[in-house]
Amino acid sequence: MEISFKNKRVLVTGAGQGIGRSIAIELWRAGAQVVAVSRTKSHLDSLHHEYPAIQIVSVDLGNWDAARKAIDQLGHFDALVNNAAVGLTEDFLTTTPENFDLLMNVNVKAMLNVSQVVAKKMIDAKKGGAIVNISSQASKAALWGHATYCASKGAVDALTRVMALELGPHNIRVNTVNPTVIMTEMGKLGWSDPAKAAGMLAKIPLGRFGEVSEVVNAVLFLLSDKASMINGVELPIDGGFLAC
């Protein structure tokens, strides 16, 4: 099944590294005009050096006004991937208000902000569109030491359902993907210890963690016209973790 994004403009947040970077690259390979957003300019410069056709924008999405201004100036998009997020581990009893605010601000509030700007322009253009929000299996299952992260991703899923409901009449589809541990460079650092990984792997029927390409493929499908009747879903990419 061939998926093409020819003549489509797509915005990808958190695109400097990891999953977001790979999504931006594969969208470009599929013909999209890609705008990659990240807070870290050095990551964007590296991406642009490798793929000069990908437009880069450096902005802190945690800053509501600055992010809103930067995204608004970029014009109309046909699709949006909300990938920018902060992850940290902190037990419930030791969770701090500072970290709670940080994760909610970036993982949820920034997603709302960017999506509002992009969706309003989609509505004005009357061409429909597609949005994919990157969530996590942590929105569906309790993970030890991830109190605030689980809460933030649960909020992402809930907000996505409301977006799907309210934007659907404008032919704008909104879905999430909910990956398990993905072996990005960060994922390898966090889960390369066999003792730590064993407990999680024991709960995944396929017996392994996910690869970046497996998330990217799902995101591109949901953004594409091949998924034209899929709206408001939360798609696990977890090897069966949530089925157990």
Rank of each mutant, 00 (worst) to 15 (best):
N63E: 09
E2R: 09
A110D: 13
V86C: 10
F221T: 03
F209I: 02
L165Q: 10
V12F: 03
V174N: 08
L206H: 00
G129R: 02
A15G: 12
T89N: 11
D193L: 03
M122E: 06
N178W: 02
A85S: 14
E185A: 15
K121E: 11
F241N: 04
G240E: 09
E90L: 12
L102R: 15
Y51K: 05
A138V: 07
K140M: 15
A79H: 04
Q55L: 15
P194E: 09
I123L: 12
K140W: 08
A36P: 14
L223G: 06
L80F: 12
S46E: 10
A125F: 15
A164L: 14
G187M: 04
N63F: 05
M111Y: 05
Q73H: 15
L206Y: 01
N83R: 06
N83G: 02
V212E: 07
S224K: 13
H76L: 08
I71R: 01
R9H: 12
Q116Y: 13
S38H: 10
F221W: 07
V10T: 08
A197H: 09
E214F: 10
L159R: 09
N7Q: 11
A66G: 07
L88M: 08
V233F: 10
K41N: 09
A151I: 04
D238V: 00
P169C: 02
V118G: 12
F77W: 13
L223D: 11
L11Q: 03
Q116K: 13
V215L: 06
N107Y: 03
L93T: 13
L74A: 13
A130D: 06
L235F: 02
V35T: 15
G128N: 05
D72C: 07
V216E: 04
A67E: 08
A85W: 04
T180M: 11
G16C: 15
N105C: 12
A79S: 13
K69H: 15
K41F: 14
W191F: 14
T160D: 04
L93F: 09
G75L: 11
M229T: 01
D193Y: 00
K196R: 14
N217G: 14
S22G: 01
S228F: 04
R39K: 15
N83H: 11
N7F: 00
A243P: 07
A164I: 15
S213P: 05
S115F: 12
A53Y: 03
G232K: 04
E26Q: 10
P97Y: 06
T40S: 11
K188P: 07
A243Y: 02
V215M: 11
G199E: 11
D65F: 03
M111D: 07
V156Q: 04
I134N: 03
L74I: 00
K41E: 12
A67Y: 05
R9P: 02
V216A: 06
L242K: 00
E50A: 15
A32N: 01
R208D: 07
T180S: 15
S4F: 00
A67T: 03
P52T: 01
L220C: 10
G75E: 07
G14H: 01
A24F: 03
K226A: 15
N63W: 00
E26L: 02
D78F: 06
G207M: 00
S42P: 03
P169M: 07
W191R: 04
G14K: 06
N105S: 09
A36K: 11
A85V: 12
D45T: 14
N63M: 07
G232V: 15
G16L: 02
V216K: 01
R21S: 01
V181S: 09
I19P: 09
T40F: 12
T160N: 13
L102S: 08
Y149T: 00
G168Y: 10
A66D: 15
